[in-house]
Design a protein around this nucleic acid. Structure first.
Length: 432
RNA sequence: GGAGAGAUGUCCGAGUGGUCGAAGGAGCUUGACUCGAAAUCAAGUGAGCUCUGCGAAGGGUUCCUAGGGUUCGAAUCCCUAUCUCUCCUCCA
């Protein structure tokens, strides 16, 4: 009763059996608290010792308790009293282990929750500047004039001043054709993923509780990045959070896997630590829209499914005719829960550089362990942790920027990409 | 917001102080029957931790929403929280 078996966090077995590998991976990631691994190892040993002791005391208590009904029925008063006193002493002994076990487990759990996922062995070394280009698609569009940045092109239709009036910095209002473009991009992406890539559309809450945020890894470490309500609920920073948690504490059936979901949600991020970055334009907002792809797979297929997920996200850009490249993130640039991440970067001619428009990751069993998302093989007995994957498919605001900058014309109007014409009902929009 | 009822295994659903990890059913697995399938019959089938063992396996322990409490002993009694349902109220 005073210890639960489930360790819903970093795999303690991995620490015990492959400590050097874990430490090496954490170094590569530039994880600051390497010492925590050793501390955790010590606590795991201590916990085992305490559990062994307390369980043998409990076993003794249980054994003697079995005599109780018989003695109560036909024993002498002396026998009853003697047994009761003996059992009382045993009960006290069992209880005496409680505080120790609880303290060790709380300390251990806090540590295990704060250790990031193990990196894939082939993660490139280094940080932000060491991403490895994997592929490119298309070519940079050529202009016979100097292409402008999106905020310059859309002075009347992207309105950060009114966003600031209504809410604050990093909020924007969209007007007219750009509001429509934002809306139809959502629909275009969802339609493409559900009709052509085999995803099931889901619609989720945009606020979630602590347990949900903890399973996907946002909590406990990154609370300062989240918007929080007075009811201890959090605004989601990505649809990954509610969609991955759909199957928290569930046992899935192998024949249903892999599960592929896509969802549109707004995303809310405080952008703590990004104060100077991208202060102008529509690139970095506290609230933005995103269509997200999420998969639940068997462990052996997660790598292949990640490549397919990445390709499904890329397909949106191909259909829109937008030049992009794919990079594999280096170790120190990867998210807390991620084992392997590819970013898709779209070309922005106004800025003259590639910008992240999608991030596709495998979380291996890390989120599955934290959220106890498991599956049972057909005909098998044991349950196993699933692998979770997700990726943006795509970020809507940045797609809007990419469309505007790539399809701009000398007069400031925007040619509508072929794929969006049925949605917009026109071939040109005028954002000025 | 007011009043009441409930939360049990993959699912449904019994179970009001000890012999309950938990009846029964569904599902699933295996076998029988069948040319095959369906139907039928039989057997099996929860999870975590931990110890012993090369392993096969076996032992111990915990888990009946969560957290506290009563008791020698809790699925069962008490308190709190969360969620679900019914009625009333309110409301897009």
């Amino acid at each position: 009763m005073f210890f639960k078996g489930e360790r819903k966090m970093f795999d303690s077995r991995l620490i015990m059996e492959q400590k050097e590998r874990v430490i090496a991976a954490m170094r590569k990631r530039n994880f600051k608290d390497i010492a925590l691994i050793e501390t955790a190892a010590g606590l795991i040993e201590k916990r085992k010792r305490l559990i062994t002791e307390s369980e043998s005391a409990r076993a003794q208590q249980n054994k003697r308790s079995k005599d109780m009904p018989q003695v109560m029925k036909s024993g002498t008063p002396e026998e009853k009293k003697a047994l009761q006193e003996e059992l009382k002493a045993l009960a006290e002994q069992v209880k005496s282990f409680q505080p120790g076990v609880k303290a060790v487990e709380e300390e251990l759990d806090a540590i295990l929750l704060s250790i990031p996922n193990l990196l894939a062995d082939d993660a490139p070394e280094g940080g932000e500047d060491n991403a490895v280009e994997v592929k490119t698609w298309g070519a940079k569009p050529q202009f016979d004039f100097t292409p402008k940045e999106h905020d310059d092109l859309c002075k009347k239709t992207i309105d950060p001043e009114r966003g600031a009036k209504l809410t604050g910095a990093r909020f924007s209002v969209l007007w007219g054709p750009l509001a429509t473009l934002e809306r139809v991009l959502i629909q275009f992406m969802l339609d493409t993923h559900t009709r052509h890539h085999g995803y099931t559309e889901v619609w989720t809450p945009f606020m979630v509780n602590r347990a949900t945020m903890t399973a996907t890894g946002q909590l406990p470490k990154f609370e300062e990045d989240l918007f929080k309500t007075t009811d201890d609920l959090f605004l989601i920073p990505t649809a990954e959070v509610p969609v991955t948690n759909l199957h928290r504490d569930e046992v899935l059936r192998e024949e249903d896997m892999p599960l592929r979901y896509c969802a549109y949600t707004p995303c809310f991020r405080r952008e703590a630590g990004n104060y100077g970055k991208d202060t102008k334009g529509y690139i970095r907002q506290h609230q933005f829209n995103k269509v997200e792809l999420v998969k639940f797979t068997r462990p052996e297929e997660s790598d292949a499914e990640l490549m397919k997920l990445l390709d499904d996200a890329e397909d949106i850009l191909r259909r829109l005719g937008l030049h992009y490249r794919v990079v594999r993130l280096a170790a120190q640039d990867q998210g807390f829960s991620s084992s392997k991440t590819f970013d898709i970067e779209v070309w922005l001619p106004g800025q003259g550089r590639y910008r992240e428009i999608s991030s596709c990751s495998s979380f291996t069993d890390y989120q599955a362990r934290r959220g106890q998302i498991r599956f049972k093989r057909t005909g098998g007995k044991a349950t196993e942790l699933v692998h979770t994957l997700n990726g943006s498919g795509l970020a809507i605001g940045r797609t809007l920027i990419a469309v505007v900058e790539n399809y701009q014309r000398a007069d400031g109007s925007i040619a509508v990409p072929e794929a969006l014409r049925p949605y917009l009902g026109c071939e040109v929009i005028n954002p000025a």
